[in-house]
Simulated assay, not measured.
Amino acid sequence: MSGLSPTARGILYMLAAIFLFSAMDALAKLLTSRYEVLQVVWARYAGQTLVVAAVLAPRLHLVIRTRHLGLQLLRSGFLFAATVCFFLALSLMEIASATAVMNIHPVLLTLGAALILREALGPRRIFGIIAAMIGALIIIRPGTDVFTPAALFPLLGGVFYASYALSTRFLGRDEVS
């Protein structure tokens, strides 16, 4: 891996991340059919905490410091809520449908960045939002069985995930280690 260019390494890391997130979603779908959703969410975060603590152990005291504890806790709450909503959706819907509805979050993030963070929303981003909405409608197919009360969970999860990403961007302006 050290012989690869930074771009090639980045591509491989991205492919690995996509694979691992897809595997996590499939495992969550499987586990939520056997266990309570909050147990599965707890296991996901307990496992993640152990891995991250082990990797960051030598510099954990530097990484854990923050100037905005309340905002960091709110940010964590957004991610937790997004995970709970998505895992609930996985327990009630097909994985492809839940993912398609949850993937509204980039559109919400772009709109939120423009409205809340005052980021520029030029013609390309507006076109991207419109294209994403059309794509989502094609995938979701309004009028089909995807539109059930259960579809509110991944939609709400998308709202929470966009809120998490917005709070990350906001905090990133000031939280420098």
Rank of each mutant, 00 (worst) to 15 (best):
H105S: 10
A162M: 04
F147S: 11
A165R: 02
I116L: 15
A54N: 01
Y35T: 11
L155D: 04
A54T: 08
S167T: 15
L27P: 04
A113T: 11
S5E: 00
G128Q: 08
L38T: 12
L31N: 02
G112S: 00
F87P: 01
V41W: 03
P154M: 02
V101T: 13
S33D: 14
L74G: 08
L56I: 02
R75C: 11
S177H: 09
T99A: 06
M102I: 03
L166C: 02
L62M: 13
L4V: 00
A81N: 09
G47F: 02
M14C: 14
L12F: 06
V41T: 05
H61T: 08
V84W: 10
S76T: 02
P142F: 05
L50F: 09
N103K: 06
I126M: 04
E36T: 10
R75N: 11
G172T: 00
L137F: 14
A120V: 06
L92G: 03
M93I: 08
A46V: 15
M93C: 14
L117G: 05
R59S: 09
L92Q: 09
G128M: 14
T110R: 11
G128E: 10
F78H: 03
N103C: 05
G122H: 12
V51G: 00
H105A: 14
R9P: 13
Y13K: 04
L31A: 12
Y35Q: 03
G77T: 02
T144E: 07
W42F: 07
A120G: 09
A43K: 00
V146N: 15
F78C: 10
R9V: 12
I140C: 05
L111C: 08
